[in-house]
Simulated assay, not measured.
Amino acid sequence: MPRYALLIEYHGGPFSGWQRQAGGQLSVQGVIEAAFTKIGPDAPTIAAAGRTDAGVHAAGQVAHADLSRDWDPFKLAGALNFHLRPHPVSILAAARVEEDFHARFSAVERQYLFRLLCRRAPATHDRGLVWQVPHQLDVAAMAEGAQHLIGLHDFTTFRATQCQAKSPVKSIDSISVTSHPVPAGMEVQFRLRARSFLHNQVRSIVGTLERVGAGAWSPDQVKTALEARDRSACGPVCPPEGLYLTRAVYPSDPFGG
């Protein structure tokens, strides 16, 4: 059975998350698998690079599926997009891949973006796409606090209590914190890179760093929280609407980029 990789973009707002739910809630995986049933006899179960939570978006999710017939990748993407309407999901590209390619297990890095809008006026064009706070933030202090999280650590403090990972030990390759002017305010962007992340790890980190930027925490308190290895030492977990899975990296790019 030929295997195909899909590069996927979606707005997470209407969905219960990536993963298909037993209770029938709307999921990204579910609507893509339903689209496959409209274009042929296949009803494949697709696997993704990251199982994003409810409300989390993707600009570069990768999934794979095994099909019973050969497809021209361009036509496959077009056919799926036709049947995905009106859901806010788009197949950006499709590619034939080797049988041993796995969207989740072959990935060597995942990259996330978190967008935080700092302004009093409500978001309009980006409503549902950013986390908004009414106060300004100290970007330099947040960047200083983030440095304590780079490298290999026990991230018990920064993972959800229901996280199913076998170990809380993870290695974060980089965290950047940058500011970008917007009308009547500022957008702060957090970009994180790691081989893999724990459940709610990114949102826990960003929520904690926001407290640093607001002056409620010092940058060194991030290190104290990390070393506590205690979920109760974490700052607030920020909402999902500012989070994007932007890229999954593989030893060889399946889409030729």
Rank of each mutant, 00 (worst) to 15 (best):
W71P: 12
F101N: 00
L6F: 14
I205W: 09
V237I: 12
T52H: 09
F155D: 01
V188S: 07
R3C: 04
A216M: 07
P122A: 12
K170Q: 00
W18S: 07
V108R: 02
V89A: 07
G50Y: 09
P219Q: 08
A48E: 10
G40T: 14
F15A: 08
G215Y: 09
G235E: 02
G215V: 04
K170N: 00
L80N: 07
P44S: 12
W18Q: 14
A194S: 10
M1L: 06
V249C: 03
I175T: 04
R231W: 02
F190C: 01
S90M: 06
G13A: 13
W71G: 04
L245N: 01
Q162W: 12
G24W: 15
H57T: 06
E109L: 13
A214Q: 11
Y112P: 07
L84G: 07
G128I: 02
C234L: 00
P251D: 01
A123Q: 04
D138Q: 05
T45G: 14
A48H: 09
T45E: 15
Y244T: 10
E98I: 00
I150V: 10
H11I: 11
V237W: 05
T224W: 04
A225V: 05
P44I: 08
R193S: 09
S232C: 07
R85M: 12
M186C: 14
L6C: 11
L209D: 05
A233P: 03
T208D: 09
R20P: 15
V130Q: 06
R3L: 08
K75G: 11
S204V: 01
H148Y: 13
Q25H: 15
G235L: 00
R127T: 08
